[in-house]
């Protein structure tokens, strides 16, 4: 054989062999995070410093993390899962993958934001909101309910993100609060009214700024990231009337996996997220709402809904496919 050929092959073989990992040391905690690396990495670093545990991190979208954990089943190397949707946590709970959390820990959080089975707990809250163009929409003439967006005067002016997990949770909540038929009718009426589909929350806000739409339905904290850096960004946001389902408050939460070999350290991480420094992080850096009873003022205008009620994601996906939005 030609020497150069042998060299290349040997080099490649070495590179591959070098990649086989040594197993993680025993005091290492593996976290599957459906929350973005952008906002969780520094917080997990801080937990490492305070607790002395090393945290291995696998980041992905919340739905994908849930799918991963279900595929892995009893083989999962994960100790803790972080998700930003009660629906995903509910699905993991129903699949029997989560271990019960100690009652003193869950008691620090309002029961609407704790799993019925006591196996997941909210760590922060995120609100749905109405974003609008400051140039083309008068702040006095805003709709009072998400159901008003089907009105003719909003034809072709509204955008939402049907593939986005937070939007899907909002539809699940609408189904739970108003019934399947109302939700279907609203989606169909929105379609007839020329609603525009965007791939994600940030795209909705950029669409408003660019003049493609005038109003949109994103989560509340995205706009703050735009205006923080560009005060002239021509978009503002508000809520609907108190209690409207369009003001849904969803959770970002945490749970310990049944398969964890270090449940003690895993619970320590969950407790850290609920502690004062953890809560301060979510509020100050990510602009979310706190969840622990000490820190939390109820989010203004939120509908009174137990978050356990929004765990039927598959029903929502089926509905979105049925009406042709997915």
């Amino acid at each position: 054989m030609h020497p150069r050929f042998v060299l290349i092959t040997a080099l490649a073989a070495c590179l591959v062999a070098g990649g086989i990992r040594t197993p993680a040391p025993a005091d290492t905690l593996t976290v599957y995070s459906g929350r973005s690396k952008s906002f969780m990495d520094a917080l997990l670093d801080r937990f490492e410093q305070e607790s002395g545990h090393t945290v291995r991190r696998v980041y992905d979208k919340t739905a994908a993390v849930a799918l991963k954990l279900q595929t892995e089943g009893d083989r999962s190397p994960a100790d803790v899962v972080l998700a930003q949707d009660a629906g995903a946590l509910g699905a993991l709970s129903r699949a029997g993958l989560l271990a019960p959390l100690p009652a003193p820990l869950t008691a620090t959080v309002d029961e609407r934001f704790v799993s019925n089975r006591g196996d997941w707990v909210a760590t922060s809250l995120r609100a749905r909101t109405l974003a609008y163009s400051t140039e083309r929409v008068s702040a006095n003439a805003l709709p009072q309910s998400v159901f008003e967006l089907t009105d003719e005067k909003y034809a072709g002016r509204v955008g939402f993100a049907p593939a986005n997990a937070s939007f899907q949770a909002f539809i699940t909540a609408m189904r739970a609060a108003h019934g399947e038929d109302t939700a279907r009718a609203w989606l169909l009426a929105m379609k007839r009214n020329g609603v525009q589909s965007f791939p994600k929350n940030t795209a909705i806000l950029e669409g408003i700024a660019a003049g493609e739409i005038d109003l949109g339905l994103p989560n509340h904290y995205y706009l703050l990231r735009f205006t923080e850096k560009d005060p002239g960004f021509p978009v503002a946001q508000t809520g609907f009337a108190d209690g409207d389902i369009g003001n849904l408050v969803n959770v970002a939460g945490a749970a310990v996996l049944n398969t964890s070999r270090q449940p003690e350290a895993a619970r320590q991480l969950v407790a850290f997220l609920l502690s004062a420094p953890g809560q301060a992080w979510f509020v100050d850096q990510i602009h979310e709402h706190p969840v622990s009873r000490d820190a939390a003022a109820p989010v203004r205008g939120a509908p009174a809904l137990n978050l356990n009620a929004i765990d039927d994601l598959n029903g929502t996906l089926t509905l979105l496919r049925e009406v042709g939005l997915l």
């Binding site: 973005s36 690396k37 952008s38 991190r57 980041y59 190397p77 994600k200 806000l205 995205y222």
Partner: peptide
Amino acid sequence: VLLRPAGYDTLAFNLWDLTGEGLYAE
């Protein structure tokens, strides 16, 4: 995104993660 080892976040992954949050400067 699906297959990488824990903590093995490629450049493309970081780009995707940050832009998804609207953190374009980062």
